[in-house]
């Protein structure tokens, strides 16, 4: 697991489960390629595969689809296909994942 981080930044090679940073990494890695639903500050919701994140919580979703805000009762309709999209961390309001995808991921979700 640590190998994939190597190229982008310093990483702690010892897999001590006590270290909070390596635990956090494991949590996040468990979510990779899972469906994720992100609500943005302007009310739009994006649904796509979680591909990448960093310390500022900038998130990249793959095959993303855009849904308009739920209060706007008129413009709801087909989602718009966006493809690869990056949501800046400061525009992320909420993040949701599908419950089944949490089964193999420790440390997330209501059962925690």
């Amino acid at each position: 697991m640590a190998t994939m981080i190597e190229e982008n930044g310093p990483s702690t090679h010892e897999h001590s489960h006590a270290s909070p940073s390596s635990q956090a990494r494991q949590k996040l890695e468990g979510l990779l390629n899972k469906n994720m639903k992100i609500r943005m500050t302007d009310g739009r919701t994006l649904v796509g595969l979680f591909l990448c994140t960093d310390r500022d919580c900038n998130v990249i979703l793959g095959s993303a689809q855009e849904f308009l805000k739920s209060t706007d009762t008129f413009s709801q309709g087909e989602p718009r296909v966006l493809g690869l999209a990056m949501i800046p961390g400061h525009h992320v309001v909420s993040i949701e994942v599908e419950a089944d995808s949490l089964e193999d991921t420790h440390g997330f979700g209501p059962n925690h």
């Binding site: 981080i5 940073s21 956090a24 994140t53 994942v97 925690h112």
Partner: peptide, 30 residues
């Protein structure tokens, strides 16, 4: 019911990452 909110945990976990570090899949890079 399938959707579970993980905002808080996610943001917390992100904070543990180093500055400039990208967490990503093997097949996905800069």
């Amino acid at each position: 019911a399938n959707w579970v909110d993980i905002t808080h945990e996610f943001k917390g976990a992100c904070k543990e990452l180093n500055l400039g570090e990208l967490l990503h899949d093997k097949l996905f890079g800069l």
